[in-house]
């Protein structure tokens, strides 16, 4: 359905996206995972025809959209990272405004507004001014506006940033429903790996403008099949212990988060005795040492040496 071929975008001397290759099939949910500044937003701006690439091509049904973006624009519903609404208007007025922009009129527009308000759970708040909404409600309306014209492809750029867990779950469930019930194709960018894991059939992982991994969840996790993740917890981690771990040649990655150190080691190595010895030498009292099932976060850690939210 949609293909990105060697797509690059350069701002002055800096590549925001470099040689990105992707494909999206009809009816699937594709995740674009990466930390802030990875190039996800630039990539989706290019694939939605909002930004011209420096080099490369975007092909929709095997035709380039660079010279004629109309076909793809007709089927896209865009959910920007920002709240792209008129916050001085009510929820209903916003939907009516964007509905009219999409040439919806009269009874059809009214029915669509009712339907969207129901879907995003804002029917009771339809007359309220958007700027008085909570972050979660604004995000829901932000999605609702993108659904007004029944898009085949919905592009969501970090739609759950800065909202409460309840609203976040609501949004994730709504996206899942849209995909399952209306066969809507979804491109979902996030730096929350659990969201991508929950929603997406296939995942592209980006970092610093480069695509560093892609495939289904299982395929990506298999990158770590030869390694295991071990989580060491202690109340007071000290520098001697961390430095010792970093200098151990069998440990491929060390990531420190407050009272927790995550290390990645080859599967065949029994690292426990070494960890306990290093802790003793560093006069550190450990709370626990656990082997963890690899997650996408671990894959990212393995590939970049950094956590997703760094």
């Amino acid at each position: 359905m949609l293909e990105l071929i060697d797509l690059s975008k350069k701002f002055k001397q800096l590549y925001a996206v470099k040689n990105l290759n992707m494909f999206i099939e009809k009816g699937e949910i594709v995740g674009l995972l990466g930390p802030n500044g990875a190039g996800k937003s630039t990539a989706i701006s290019m694939l939605s025809s909002l930004v011209d690439p420096t080099t490369g091509d975007v092909r929709f049904h095997n035709k380039s959209i660079l010279k004629n973006p109309s076909p793809i624009r007709k089927i896209i519903g865009m959910v920007p990272q920002e709240i792209a609404l008129y916050t001085d208007l009510s929820a209903e007025e916003n939907l009516r405004f964007f509905g009219r922009i999409y040439r919806l009129k009269g009874a059809e527009l009214k029915q669509k507004i009712d339907e969207i308000l129901e879907l995003i759970g804002l029917t009771d708040r339809r007359k309220d001014i958007v700027k008085k909404f909570s972050g979660g409600m604004k995000r829901r309306l932000n999605i609702g506006v993108a659904l007004l014209h029944n898009p085949e492809l919905i592009i969501m750029d970090e739609p759950t940033v800065g909202i409460d867990p309840q609203s976040r779950n609501y949004i994730l469930e709504t996206v899942k429903r849209l995909n399952e019930e209306k066969q809507m194709t979804v491109i979902y960018t996030s730096h929350y790996m659990e969201e991508v894991e929950f929603l997406c059939d296939r995942i592209y992982i980006m970092d610093q403008g480069n695509l560093i991994a892609s495939g289904t969840k299982d395929e990506i996790k298999r990158i770590l099949s030869a390694e295991k993740t071990i989580v060491i917890k202690a109340d007071r981690l000290n520098d001697i212990f961390i430095e010792s771990l970093r200098q151990d040649p069998t440990i491929s990655s060390v990531t420190v988060e407050e009272k927790k150190v995550t290390i990645i080691v080859p599967k065949e190595i029994n690292i426990f005795p070494a960890v306990l010895k290093l802790a003793e030498e560093a006069k550190l009292e450990l709370n626990s040492v656990d082997i963890k099932t690899p997650t996408l976060e671990d894959v990212f850690l393995h590939l970049t040496g950094r956590a997703l939210r760094d």
Partner: peptide, 12 residues
């Protein structure tokens, strides 16, 4: 900046 124009650009 807040993306309203992007939405309108993608519209007819």
């Amino acid at each position: 900046n807040n993306g309203v124009w992007d939405r309108i650009i993608l519209s007819p």
